[in-house]
Design a protein around this nucleic acid. Structure first.
Length: 137
RNA sequence: UCAGAUGGCCGGAUGGCCGCUCCUUGUGCCUGCACAGGGGGAGGAAAGUCCGGGCUCCACGGAAAUACGGUGCCGGAUAACGUCCGGCGAGGGUGACCUCAGGGAAAGUGCCACAGAAAGGAAACCGCCUGACGGGGUGAGACUUUCGGGUUUCAUCCACAGGUAAGGGUGAAAGGGUGCGGCAAGAGCGCACCGCGCGUCCGGUAACGGAGGCGGCAUGGCAAACCCCACCGGGAGCAAAACCAAAUAGGGGCGCGGCGUCUUCGCAAGAAGGCAACUCCGUUUCCGGAAGCGCGCCCGGGUUGGUUGCACGAGGCGGCUGGCAACAGUCGUCCCAGAUGAAUGGCCAUCGGCUGCGUCGGUCUUGCGGCUGGCGUGGACCACAGAACCCGGCUUACAGGCCAUCUGACCCU
């Protein structure tokens, strides 16, 4: 599974759908293709020192690698953001956090952007999905 | 046994399931990737980025000076250091041992708050002492008297003039300290010892130490105030730097072509021919050149991606030799992280540790309670902390534990 590597990809995801839970914050963006889902990780200095940030990032990576193949949709980028609760959240609860977050993001009533249809998403005025396409070459 | 001192070391373990990265071997459509087997994969501080180097680029005639910055007892170690080792001196501790920004204050300038009389070529606030033929007050005595007093002597107080740094008081610090003599009272005024300074001899590579001599106290403290002296230092940093590949707007260079207009052919694109030259320069024309234009090529720079730099090194471990040691030499052996939105792990179980509670013992104590051991049980419990070019240090953080040597008490033999 590919990971996000460039700053502009993270910025694009930050403008997409977003859902926060106790253990993590999930952001997503619909790409204009039908490739496998990708993920990126973000843990800011606010969470703690380098050791704490590394541990939080590894837990989030394990979450993404275990659940994303079945829950992630093709053509989507997901960014998992660590928070203070990521470190001591029980493992099952952390998995449940991710599952509920991805469910909320793809819920049909929330935004039609979740359908993966890029043309309808550009017409939807709820979220700033449009600059994503403008930025992509 | 208890309390310490110094030095060194470790800093969770085992298993299962699922993953990451690098190397290597094999197979496969062998470019790139996939699969399988094997192997490596965070620290003592990886941290702070405070010093010193290697390496890279830039600058530079060797270098020196000025400025600026740093270092500062002596000797040694080292690639180098502000580091380390061994000494010296001063201070602290019963001791093992620890601490020290430890050059120069008779080169100069400056500062020494508050308090205090005075803070630096001394100074008289209190105190102590002396003074008369003199001034004032009080008391006592003597003489005299017209009984109001007067004269005079002594003591004492005040004022005055001087002497005095021993004492008090102020202060971080008051111009050597202690003792004896001396003196009106005092004072290095004299003497002895200590301190200080100067030179001699001895020991030591030296810092420095020791002995004896002279001086007779002059030279207060602060240099982490300026400063002086000695020594060291060019600047920036791996996001350094080199290379490759793309796609670009603009820049520079080279080469070629060309400009306007008319006619003919052609739907057009364009072709052929004639006439002729917009701006600048060579005074003008001719002619030539240059720039503006187009095309092609090249150069350099920036952006993005990739590769190198980049892990065989002032390398680790062990032995021997030299040295008190830091360390050096030599022999053997080993290859030991290499990520880049950043790998080195996620989850579970068992053990271990820590800690709270309960309970049962042991021991010390009058007791409260302390120490220690067993069992049960609980705990988002598990120190500080994550390589980023690499080394040598320093500093800071750190649950718990181990080892060695040494010191001081107490007990036993």
């Amino acid at each position: 599974m590919d990971r996000l590597k460039y700053r502009r990809e993270f910025l694009a995801a930050a403008h997409g759908q977003k859902w926060a839970t106790v253990g993590l914050v999930l952001q997503s963006r619909a790409r204009a293709d039908e490739n496998d889902p990708r993920y990126g990780l973000t843990v800011t200095r606010k969470v703690g020192n380098a050791v704490v940030r590394n541990r939080a990032r590894r837990r989030l990576r394990a979450v993404a690698q275990s659940l994303l193949p079945e829950l992630g949709r093709k053509g989507f980028d997901y960014v998992l953001i660590g928070r203070a609760g990521t470190l001591h959240r029980p493992w099952d609860a952390l998995l449940a956090d991710f599952a509920s977050a991805i469910e909320h993001i793809h819920k049909p009533g929330r935004a039609r952007a979740s359908s993966g249809d890029t043309h309808s998403s550009s017409r939807a005025p709820r979220q700033q999905e449009r600059p994503v396409h403008g930025r992509e070459p």
